[in-house]
């Protein structure tokens, strides 16, 4: 199952790359850049990265956001993301979807982090694996960007996501992802 997902992801990555080569590159706001603290050139990128805006959330839901897109490991060794930080929120976690005992799909922290195979991709999407930025300290406005410093086995790598309006991503969590609640 996991292998199949990765293959599908890789195919999508190739497509995006082909389109870029044809001159239909996406706006620069969605490409990732290496941070100053990155130990090497960015071997991890987030393609078509986006995050749910807080201005498209109801007032009581503005505490966290999901980050989605296609993680791509251009290196020759597998890469694991174990955590991260962001100026936008107090906490960054990797989340996965699991089925709970009542048969409902629920989000929970992926304690082992995300591992992206060498030369492979790892898809982040609503209702599946994604990155959460929690305890937001500022509004994320549609059309702005949010940067995240990902703690990885290859050092800290900064990725950027475009903030967009999105009504989804309000799934139930187990346990509640925000420690302060």
């Amino acid at each position: 199952m996991r292998v199949r997902t990765l293959i599908a992801g890789a195919a999508a990555g190739v497509l995006a790359l082909t389109l870029t080569a044809c001159g239909s590159s996406s706006s620069t706001s969605t490409t990732s850049t290496p941070s100053a603290s990155a130990s090497t050139a960015a071997v991890l990128t987030l393609q078509d990265g986006w995050a749910k805006s807080t201005d498209s959330m109801s007032a009581d839901k503005k505490t966290m956001t999901g980050v989605f897109g296609m993680l791509k490991n251009t290196g020759s060794t597998p890469l694991t993301i174990t955590g991260g930080s962001s100026a936008a929120g107090k906490m960054v976690q990797m989340h996965e979807t699991v089925m709970n005992s009542s048969g409902t799909m629920q989000m929970q922290e992926a304690k082992a982090g995300f591992t992206i195979p060498a030369g492979g991709t790892f898809e982040l999407k609503p209702g599946a694996n994604h990155i959460m930025v929690m305890d937001l300290v500022k509004d994320l406005k549609v059309g702005d960007t949010v940067s995240i410093d990902l703690k990885t086995s290859a050092g800290v790598i900064t990725v950027t996501a475009a903030v967009r309006a999105f009504p989804g991503g309000s799934e139930s969590y187990n346990p509640s992802p925000s420690m302060s609640h």
Binding site: A16, S24, S26, S27, S29, W50, P126, G143, R164
Partner: peptide
Amino acid sequence: DALRRLFVVLTDDIERLMAGRGSLTDQ
């Protein structure tokens, strides 16, 4: 500033849609 953000979204959405790729949030 909101206008700037509007044109960021429009430019990106239109370029993707015209290329047959769907906008970023497109499911």
